[in-house]
Amino acid sequence: MEIKIALPSKGRISDPAVKLLSRAGIGLKDTVNRKLFSDTYDDQISVMFTRAADIPEFVADGAADLGMTGLDLIKEKGAQVKIMEDLKFGKSKLVLAAPEESDIKKLTDIKQDSIVATEFPNLTRKYLESKKKSVKIVQLSGSTEIAPFIGVSDLIADLTSTGTTLKMNHLQMVDTILESSVQLIANTVSYVEKKEKIEEIRTGIKGVLDADGKKLVMMNVDEEVLDDVKLAMPGMTGPTVSQVLSDNGVVAVHAVVNEHEVFHVVNRLKKIGARDILVVPIERII
């Protein structure tokens, strides 16, 4: 039983997708010479590299069993796939934007029969129709930002991560059509026929995602202050306590802590009397 995973061949989400697979234990055998098809360290799993925009259709058609691509592309293509996990990277927004000097400041300012230039005609049309706006859509394949300034459109619908590119091009956001991030998707037939292996892959990936931003904090404490430690050190299901056999009255405590809380938690623990404190990275949480 072979599982073929489609990954973006280039662009800002390509390297994070490859790294996520590697962290999940499904690393590529050859990470230097990227080919159309690559083997992994699991004999049942291979990777195909293609354009991110083509991945929804390739997965829907069964050319690949799994894929990683943006929610915006999945929705734009209307691909009939199973969305399995939000992979939490490649975050962006599909927004409506107009020139800064334009009278269009908000959705209600968009006049009937306005012209919108975009690489996402289907998403844009459906959204504006849902808002009772009848507009003309002009589909472009790039350089969308320039369209209002050369008379092609009144406004645009384009992806933005931080809004910086919009500001650089003297555009202002009017409304948000869709918030997007990279998703793990599956072919619906493959998911039924190869469910066990696909769920193994999903578990590996989800374990990495769940571990992001968390640390394992371990220490020794006197048993008499254990209640204070428990209050200072909440874990996912409470801290784990075990006896230290070589030292009477001392217990070992460890718990998973959010990374941004580690500084304050460690200092609280030291004041209580904890010692031999270790802060350890977590690769996966299953």
Rank of each mutant, 00 (worst) to 15 (best):
V135F: 07
E259L: 11
Y127R: 01
G11Y: 01
G238S: 15
R275Q: 11
E200K: 12
G207N: 07
A24I: 03
E193S: 12
G273N: 11
S92F: 04
A211P: 07
L21R: 00
V279L: 07
E100T: 15
E224T: 11
P281G: 14
S114H: 05
I104S: 04
G273A: 12
A211K: 01
D222S: 14
A24K: 00
V217L: 06
H170V: 10
P56N: 02
T144Q: 05
K136I: 13
S22N: 09
L184F: 00
E57M: 14
S92A: 15
E179D: 10
E200Y: 07
E223R: 12
T40R: 00
K105T: 10
V229E: 07
S180A: 10
E57G: 01
L123P: 09
M84Y: 10
L73M: 08
Y41V: 14
E200R: 08
T160Y: 03
A60H: 07
V280G: 11
S134Y: 10
D227P: 06
I282D: 14
I26K: 00
T188M: 15
G273R: 08
K93Y: 10
V116S: 04
A63S: 13
M173P: 05
I282K: 09
K230G: 13
V138T: 09
F37W: 13
G151Y: 03
D42F: 04
K271T: 15
D247C: 13
D42C: 06
L71W: 06
I115G: 02
F120C: 07
G67R: 02
L178A: 04
I272G: 11
D42M: 03
V116C: 03
L231Q: 11
L123Y: 01
M236Y: 11
L71P: 01
G62Y: 05
F120Y: 15
K214W: 08
R51L: 13
L171D: 00
E145W: 07
D65T: 08
I45S: 00
N122A: 09
I5A: 04
D43F: 13
M168L: 15
A186W: 03
Y127T: 05
K105Q: 09
S143I: 14
D228R: 12
V116Q: 00
R202D: 08
D109F: 14
E100V: 13
G238E: 09
D72W: 03
Y127Q: 04
V251R: 12
V225P: 02
I115T: 12
I74Q: 05
I137D: 06
R34A: 05
E129L: 14
V182Y: 01
S141C: 06
R202F: 15
I177Q: 00
A6W: 00
I5C: 02
G163N: 04
A232E: 05
Y191T: 03
Q243T: 12
L20K: 05
V174A: 06
T144W: 06
S14R: 10
F49R: 08
L7R: 07
K75R: 15
V280C: 14
I201D: 01
V221G: 02
K111V: 10
A157S: 11
Q243M: 12
T108V: 11
K197E: 11
I282M: 10
A147W: 01
E200G: 05
V182G: 01
E2R: 13
L245A: 15
K35Q: 14
K105V: 04
E129D: 10
K35Y: 06
L28P: 07
I156G: 06
I286M: 12
